[in-house]
Design a binder for these strands. Structure first.
Lengths: 208, 208, 208, 208
DNA sequence: TATGAATGAGCATTCATTCAT
DNA sequence: GATGAATGAATGCTCATTCAT
């Protein structure tokens, strides 16, 4: 028998946890609810996760991993850097909106947890930023310019996208704004913002 | 007796709640702790607030109010629109960073609460956005251009600032980046982003 | 209305706790069982005691207090020191045997608890020893001798009595020994042991 | 393969259990921890011990056995009975203080366990007392006297030593008393106590 | 023999809320 | 208005034990 899954509780626990997280929010997620939903004992969960926080860490890890892979897929396609940038921005937003569970976990939960990120966790969580920084660098190089600190620029881009995602998730966006258009415009503004700064020392706009 | 306040529990409850929120975070705030800190009975709090969520709503209201007043103060000073924009961006970030309690309440807690925003609450929470939109409009007008949808543009600006604040609060920013510089650069990028779009239909950069 | 007791949960909790302790031992005592036995909510207990350990501390305090009062009662009666000593030894053993709950609490539980004795608790717990030391001192003085360190001697006497009590409680005494006689003999041996030492520097027995 | 031991789990389980007992106390000893420390499955332990209590019983047996052998070693040396008595008293105290695990098990745990001592266990646990009684008898005989009930006398001696050990372990001894001196004095008092009683019917001290 | 997944009862503790006074 | 006693459900977690493999 191959039976690779037989029960595969670990997988199921994470799925249920993420699902409950999306439905009820962190506050209302409990080990008991996971167990109930899984129709297993509470103790069983502790066979697979040391404690509640560990479930969140696993969720975070899955999220960072998926995001990183999404970025990689995009960047291996032969496109212009500007196109790449637009695509990863869209990917980031899409990731956030379709994975509010991951998202809440990563940005809201994390500060509530006791343990700090480990060096390794931090490194993995930053890989998507490194890819972004790299692409921004290519973008600049392509037009014969340089970015003084492309990691900072990547962070700024991240913050803009991240802010949009959290506002949308938190339902703070005025309902009269069309979401699709808002997102596209936000991406355009964020990327355009760099055109002025690519040559570090003057803010005179330069044609892309 | 002067008795404008006799006890003024409502005021004190909010102050204590906000204080505890900043200190311990939402997770560790409880009616009991508020009562203990106030040296009053737990029941007393229920005379002034129907339940825990209502306290948060009041806190949110206070936050939106303060932010609005900060904006007003800035905008009544006789400065160029671009300066105004930079100042309100700084004010927003400063507000977020110095009021993590308000901030957590407004953007993290809110979606966890049961009731949705009322029409009126929503209107008040959006007033700072209206001011932003207005200033952006002035900024465009000043250079003989028009913004097709300055409320959307204001939202995009908000999202960029908001994203930065949450990342900083959540300690997700790489520690090697100098915070002051990061903030200033982020503001510059965000505002520059609009230069390209002020004349709606082409993306050719135009000098400010 | 005088209603000094209305419910007087604190008292009842201690009584139930001591009772359960005697019946089931520490291992099987739980807040839940106390609540169940008292037919009150679990939370109620926490209104009167901060946590489980605090209940034990209160029990210990009651024990030390009662023992001290027993000693005082004995020592205020006008008897010869030797008689006093015999009486407090009997009182100690009687106290231990009729209050196995207190006893287990004081000598078994205490080391299991997290917090150490406070200075004040320690002082109170030692008062009966001071009385013993005092009486031993009188005993020596009466026969024109001195005890070099009557607090140490009191401790030795205590240890002998204490050992007997724990062995009896733990049922480690051979059932063929008559308990009453054993106790009387043990007291006699323990007190006689001091006759040799009353003049510090030689161990030659001296007639009482 | 040499395989006198192959794994010898039984031995290892007891060693680990005793060790954990000394480190953490009874309250914090669990089958899980034993298994974890042994790097074996929890189920494995149940192949060698019916349940948790059985491990304690085995520990107790080992303790009684070791104590008995210690006594035997002392008593086979050609010394005066009084010297023998002092030596076994010291041995008892030393055993208790250096094996708080055994000790806790034997005197604290035992009453918490469900099953009572079996006839055979009881017999073995009493052997060290028989040796004590015997030595006391020799002590009396040597000076031409008789002890009416040397088993009771041995029990009294035991109680005195036992009390001292438990007080020391439980940290109930005033820290200002020097432990070494206290122990020696306690032994002296306890043994001197018998000088008065060796001729049963009068309490007149007789020189050793 | 040995495993290790799974159980289910148990634990101490905290909480928002109610209500008679 | 204000109290504070009381509730009862919920929480994260640990445990001894069983049992199919």
């Amino acid at each position: 028998m191959l039976t690779p899954t037989t029960t595969d509780y670990r997988r199921q626990i994470l799925d249920v946890a993420r699902h409950l997280l999306i439905e009820d929010g962190y506050k209302n997620l409990s080990m008991r609810k996971i167990a109930r939903q899984l129709a297993c004992s509470q103790g069983t969960i502790y066979l697979y996760f040391k404690n509640k926080d560990d479930i969140f860490y696993a969720l975070i890890d899955e999220g960072t991993e998926q995001l990183y892979r999404d970025y990689q897929t995009i960047l291996t396609a032969p496109n212009a850097p500007r196109t790449h940038l637009e695509q990863i921005c869209r990917a980031y937003i899409h990731f956030g909106l379709t994975n509010p569970g991951y998202y809440e976990t990563m940005y809201i939960l994390l500060p509530l947890l006791k343990k700090r990120f480990s060096q390794e966790q931090y490194r993995r969580a930053r890989r998507f930023l490194d890819l972004t920084a790299n692409t921004l660098s290519n973008y600049a190089a392509e037009s014969g310019r340089t970015l003084s600190d492309c990691f900072m620029e990547a962070t700024i881009l991240w913050a803009a996208m991240h802010g949009l995602v959290t506002l949308i998730i938190a339902r703070r966006i005025d309902t009269r704004l069309a979401q699709e258009i808002l997102i596209e415009q936000a991406i355009a503004r964020a990327l355009n913002g760099f055109c002025y700064t690519i040559t570090q020392n003057n803010l005179t706009p330069t044609p892309s």
